[in-house]
């Protein structure tokens, strides 16, 4: 993997905003984290279309709603913890309830924030944002997907929550990649089990698939970049064809991808499944590889869970 190109999805977000700026009318807000969320790249190139709101995320979300109400789309950025946590109620009531055209660019999602530790590692945003009617949630798996997702979010009429990561991830999609909002992506086919990943965990699922192959187990890998609305068809098809599933996400196992997949299966085609994720605990400081290991967000853990669900068929 050493020669694989890596880029953090937050970096792709900042670059995508710049690339879209000449083509579309929108403004960008941030809450004193432009250097980290990478909206700073946009600020430098388009200072007249960038507005810092200071460390006041709640106000920023309601301001974004006000701007959007005049017909101008807005990207509002902060860390996932503050965008979805601190400002939850503003996102719900100012943006979600009126269905305003605000795109929330939430960076530093999940455990891969790293050394900053538990207060800044947001493992709850899929759960909270999923509970808001009409909210679209996108969690891209690499820089290519992130770039495409930003434009798709802008073209979608209504609120979108995009989660980006701090940590550089391998590019696993080709330049010809086409992003379809709400559509899962079949990354690799297989017959014995399906590994359903999102974001960071998609490449980890692909690693797990290789490990399983060595043991003679054929695993399908699906990338769910749109957590909501989730692609039911691809999941039901996988349940029917492979008979067992493992979900993997950088998020609490409660209310995120694992829960969303379970909801689809239990109502349509129940199948043995297991959830890999943060298991009802807070994060902690550490390097990203150490944290992924500590919380079981590894290919090895996915392999173990895959064997377990296959046994339960």
């Amino acid at each position: 993997m050493a020669d694989v190109k890596k880029i953090a999805t937050r970096e792709a977000y900042g670059n995508a905003l710049c690339a879209l700026a000449p083509k579309y009318d929108f403004v960008v807000l941030d809450a004193d984290l432009a250097a980290a969320t990478k909206t700073g790249i946009f600020k430098k190139q388009y200072p007249d279309r960038f507005f810092d709101c200071g460390i006041a995320e709640g106000n920023m979300m309601s301001v974004a709603a006000g701007i959007a109400s005049t017909g101008k789309p807005v990207f509002a950025s902060s860390f996932a913890m503050f965008a979805s946590g601190r400002a939850f109620e503003q996102v719900r009531n100012s943006i979600g309830y009126p269905g305003l055209n605000v795109k929330i660019g939430a960076t530093h999602g999940g455990i891969s924030v790293g050394e900053d530790g538990a207060t800044h590692q947001c493992n709850e945003d899929f759960a909270t944002m999923r509970s808001i009617p009409g909210m679209v949630i996108i969690n891209p798996c690499d820089g290519v997907e992130a770039t495409a997702a930003v434009e798709a979010a802008l073209l979608h009429q209504g609120p979108v929550y995009m989660r980006f990561g701090r940590y550089a991830l391998p590019i696993i999609n080709g330049d010809d990649y086409k992003f379809e909002l709400g559509k899962g992506v079949l990354m690799a086919d297989g017959t014995d089990v399906t590994l359903v990943g999102t974001g960071f965990m998609v490449s980890v699922c692909l690693d797990a698939r290789e490990l399983l192959a060595k043991e003679g187990i054929s695993a399908r890998v699906i990338n769910i970049h749109t957590i909501k609305p989730i692609d039911k068809d691809i999941l039901i098809k996988a349940a029917k064809e492979t008979g067992a599933l493992v979900t993997a996400e950088e998020h609490t196992i409660m209310g995120g991808l694992g829960s969303a997949v379970a909801e689809v299966l239990v109502e349509n085609h129940p199948a043995p499944m297991a959830r890999v994720g943060v298991e009802d605990t807070f994060g902690r400081s550490g390097t990203v590889p150490a944290l992924m290991e500590y919380y079981g967000l590894t290919a090895e853990n996915i392999v173990a869970k895959a064997k377990e669900v296959i046994k339960r068929k």
Partner: peptide
């Protein structure tokens, strides 16, 4: 929340 939204409209 409303006063913030009003700020957004004024800024727009």
């Amino acid at each position: 929340l409303g006063i913030s939204a009003a700020c957004g409209m004024a800024l727009a």
